[in-house]
Design a protein around this nucleic acid. Structure first.
Length: 478
RNA sequence: CGCGGGGUAGAGCAGUAGUAGCUCGCCAGGCUCAUAACCUGGAGGUCGCGGGUGCGAAUCCCGCCCCCGCAACCA
């Protein structure tokens, strides 16, 4: 039943170091990828970095750095996450990669061939903060409501446009399907398509004003708009436009299941612009996009001035990678904003990991090590239907709860059947009870694989070796 | 009429129609294999307010009240 499964995060824009939001998205995507591999699906897990655009160009210039050197510097901060978060991605695409540049130019040509790109002299207001055009109806007191401190740029030049308006009906038909989770985001998308903001958009800039972009095919005076370029990464990473039968593109995008993971502010780009580009280029749209919520701190958006910015990598350092993954997956709501504070983190760490999982592993394996003469026989194949169904629905929290229910069951079972006592009077019966617990622990270990891969391995190894593991999660004070 | 999120036990949260749940804290008991961990029981909730639909509503509909976010970074 092996089937190809493609999953991708959005590409972080490399104008700063990775933060908690990136960490959340990567960990969620990683859990999904691992859960598919656990089912023997063939997985292609993509991530990477978005490296073009005016904002990056401006910042590099401002810091007096060569732009390429600047993006290299930040791209490295993101590739380092593979180790820091124990990610299992298969590809890391950079939009400055040669194969990506060629793919971006190719999709441009396809859209152009479809008659969807035209040149227009236009004048508009542009927010560099969003890297988006703004219509007057979107403005508050003449400024972008999201970036009130930035003056809008007045763009007055001849640019290329993409005929988004042509795809109104096609997009509505697409959005009517099961293509967006959660429902609130699907409604956002439909409302946008039906609203005033749904208009053709500029997809190029005059090179003389903004040189840091991919050249427009056939017009050396223009470079591509950053979004038009960046979105193409989802297929350039699959070596598109190589559409041969044995290409990754054919295997995963044409014949596989495709899934994008994105933040809840990405609806307009991922489910509208990008899908319209694909329709224009005659490439199938993404089958599903999952939009996660944001992480707040102390009930407020993290901000440097409030001093409530939490660095997940500090926590990974202090508590271990799996503790951070545990928090993100079990105690962060998949769709809504969630609060992340040290108090909450330590509380859930102590309750779920030290007292719960870690303690159970210790008590079971201590008995097993002492009383079993050899490791229990364990199976690699079990029925995790409910568990996988929850993961497939992006309900990482509820999926986790299933595992912790099993942990609680084991604790209660030990209390009731008292194998530590029984084994003294009736060795055979006691050993049977202990063996059963070891098997249960192994199952818990297997289920943990997508969420906490290292911990999963430690538990499985301990059961197989019939040896009590070192304390995995020691209690912490707040 | 800005946009969005939210109001469920002392605190923090889950729960989109069918006997109100989780974590922490508190009280009482138990166990001793284990990381002062674990188990059982208990106290504690008009699920913001008022209407409506339903056999049945925290959950759906209408109205109202209150709280939070909407420089920069940005998922």
């Amino acid at each position: 039943m092996s089937r190809p499964f493609y999953i991708t995060t959005t590409l972080p824009y490399v104008n700063d170091k990775p933060h908690v939001g990136h960490a959340l998205e990567f960990v969620q995507a990683d859990a999904l990828a691992r859960s598919r591999r656990l089912r023997d699906d063939e997985v292609f897990f993509n991530t990477g970095t978005d490296e073009h655009g005016q904002k990056i160009y401006d910042k590099a210039v401002k810091e007096g750095r060569d732009v390429k050197e600047y993006v290299d510097f930040y791209a490295e901060r993101f590739t380092a996450l593979k180790e820091k978060l124990n990610l299992s991605y298969d590809a890391f695409i950079r939009t400055t990669d040669e194969k990506h540049i060629q793919a971006a130019q190719e999709i441009w040509k396809r859209c152009e061939a479809a008659g969807d790109i035209y040149k227009k002299n236009y004048k508009t207001k542009y927010c560099v903060g969003c890297e988006l055009e703004k219509t007057d109806s979107e403005l508050v007191e003449g400024k972008c409501p999201i970036h009130l401190n930035l003056e809008l740029q007045i763009v007055d030049e001849e640019n290329y446009f993409f005929k988004l308006s042509k795809y109104k009906d096609a997009l509505l038909a697409y959005l009517a399907g099961d293509v967006v989770t959660p429902l609130a985001r699907k409604n956002d998308a439909i409302n946008f398509v039906n609203g005033d903001g749904f208009q053709d958009f500029s997809i190029s800039r005059l090179k003389e004003k903004m040189s840091w972009g991919i050249p427009v095919p056939g017009d050396e005076s223009q470079v591509m708009y950053v979004w038009f370029d960046a979105l193409t990464n989802y297929i350039s990473t699959l070596d598109w436009p190589n559409e041969s039968a044995d290409s990754n593109f054919t295997k995963y995008w044409m014949n596989g299941e495709t899934l994008q993971v994105a933040g809840k502010d990405q609806v307009r780009m991922q489910s509208i612009m990008w899908q319209a580009m694909l329709l224009s280029a005659n490439v199938p749209p993404t089958q599903h996009v999952f939009y996660h919520g944001f992480i707040t701190s102390g009930g407020q958006k993290m901000s440097k001035s409030l001093g409530n910015v939490l660095d997940p990598f500090d926590y990974a350092e202090e508590f271990g990678i799996d503790a951070v993954r545990y928090f993100f997956l079990r105690h962060v709501h998949p769709f809504e904003d969630s609060d992340f504070t040290r108090e909450r983190f330590v509380e859930s760490y102590n309750a779920g990991l030290a007292n719960g999982l870690g303690n159970l592993a210790s008590r079971v394996m201590k008995m097993a090590e002492e009383h079993l003469t050899e490791p229990v026989v364990v199976a690699e194949k079990e029925d995790f239907t409910d568990y996988f169904a929850l993961l497939d629905a992006f309900k990482f929290n509820e999926a986790s709860d299933l595992i912790w229910q099993k942990i609680a069951e084991c604790d209660a079972l030990i209390q009731e059947s008292q194998p530590f006592k029984v084994v003294k009077d009736d060795a055979e019966k006691g050993r049977a009870l202990i063996a059963d617990l070891a098997v249960r622990l192994y199952t818990i270990g297997r289920m943990l694989n997508p969420l906490m891969p290292s911990t999963s391995q430690i538990i499985k190894d301990a059961v197989k070796a019939n040896k009590k593991p070192e304390n995995m999660f020691s209690r912490r004070e707040a």
